[in-house]
Design a protein around this nucleic acid. Structure first.
Lengths: 222, 222
DNA sequence: TCCAAACATACTACTCGGTAGGCTGAAAAC
DNA sequence: GTTTTCAGCCTACCGAGTAGTATGTTTGGA
């Protein structure tokens, strides 16, 4: 299937920083894994397919990752980190709770669109695939990723609390209200299909529309 | 693993209607499959595990279903039908769009709680697992189940349109607004964990809270 | 007694995660 | 300029698990 050994690709790129090149290669593999997991799910995705995606073989993957589940965890971790990086800026502004939440929801939705593979994979959840037959270190990583997920959810919970306290939002249980809110946002990864040539403005309009929905769901009526 | 052949279970139950007994057995298998698919997903679930769940073997499954994917389709189909049956009554009342939508959302959420295995499986989606390597008849069934999903979504779209027309709801694109709405509802299947001894009233309160959220997300502010 | 429904059992063919060992080219050592 | 080294893979393989099948078996009923 492969044409030939093309030599040291990284070196041919003239890279000096070995560490950086190594990290890039890891991300190449991660991107390919995210796309494959998105399309077929964890169990149905073979590592041979993942390595095909980057024109390589399974050996390359096992040089950078120790197991299939470690690769899966890495996809989740990166998805969570992307999410945190996307929503935190709006969370930290000095604006009202309403406006902060709106900004978070817009950023979140744009992120889903722009990084669909990662976001769809994390929306599928990982507990499903790994509840059984896990060893000690895998359970530790699972707890780790779960903590990241919780950290993201907590940003929403806190901004909801702020809105309730300031009287902008209805008097809801923030932890419970965050669930359908996140559902509305994460669901985007399930139905959205990338349109080639879709403008950034169009994405923004879609994100605004969804953000309007979740904010209105919490605001007081008058 | 099995203790012994316990004879004709169905006949021992004194069933007269053979057709009904046969249907019951099919549902037993379907329930077991739904639970297994819920916990491990389609690809990671072996038919041996499914048959273990009903204290039987793979032969029993293949007597009632022709393939693993047919069983998977059947789970989806039943989940969709349960959903339709749950939300249609509220949809068809003569009340306002707001109240009809609220009733649909409450019924939908209660259904998710009461039939978690089926609803979580359909929330995972099936296209994911079966996009490739499908034959002709499987693609037909896929389209069939997709039509059922669309039919459910259309009930929501129509009630949203009614609300926009009557002025109760904001002026939104109904097809687009239905997405986050369904996301908020379906997401329940992802985070909800059954509490033994949870009262029906407690379930109802949870469902009301989520329904309030999605209705408020569409209502006009004053 | 005989039959067929309703399974159970035993197999096959195949896939896939993981591993062991080999290869290669660039760069360091001399 | 030659030799050595070793990162970065590739190849070939093994063993475990599994969908699907072919055939055997039981049992209630005709």
């Amino acid at each position: 299937m492969r044409v030939a050994q093309e030599g040291h690709l990284l070196s041919k790129l003239g890279r000096i920083e070995t560490g950086e090149a190594l990290a890039d290669r890891r991300i190449d593999i991660l991107d390919a894994a995210a796309r494959a997991f998105m399309r077929q799910g964890f169990a149905a995705t073979s590592l041979d397919r993942v390595s095909d995606e980057i024109g390589s073989t399974k050996g390359a993957i096992y040089y950078y990752y120790r197991s299939k589940s470690e690769l899966f965890f890495a996809v989740h971790r990166r998805g969570m980190e992307l999410t945190q990086a996307a929503i935190r800026p709006s969370f930290e502004t000095a604006a009202s709770a309403r406006d902060r939440l709106h900004g978070m929801a817009v950023a979140h939705t744009v992120l889903v669109i722009d990084h669909l593979p990662y976001l769809r994979v994390i929306a599928q959840g990982l507990e499903l695939h790994l509840l059984e037959r896990t060893n000690e270190s895998e359970r530790a990583e699972l707890a780790d990723v779960a903590a990241l997920r919780e950290a993201n959810e907590n940003l929403y919970i806190r901004v909801i609390r702020d809105g309730v306290a300031s009287g902008q939002f209805r008097s809801v249980d923030a932890k419970l209200a965050a669930k359908p809110l996140l559902g509305a946002l994460n669901w985007t990864s399930r139905w959205y299909q990338p349109r080639p040539g879709e403008t950034q403005a169009a994405k923004k309009r879609l994100a605004e529309s969804i953000a309007d929905f979740v904010v209105a769901g919490l605001e007081k009526k008058n």
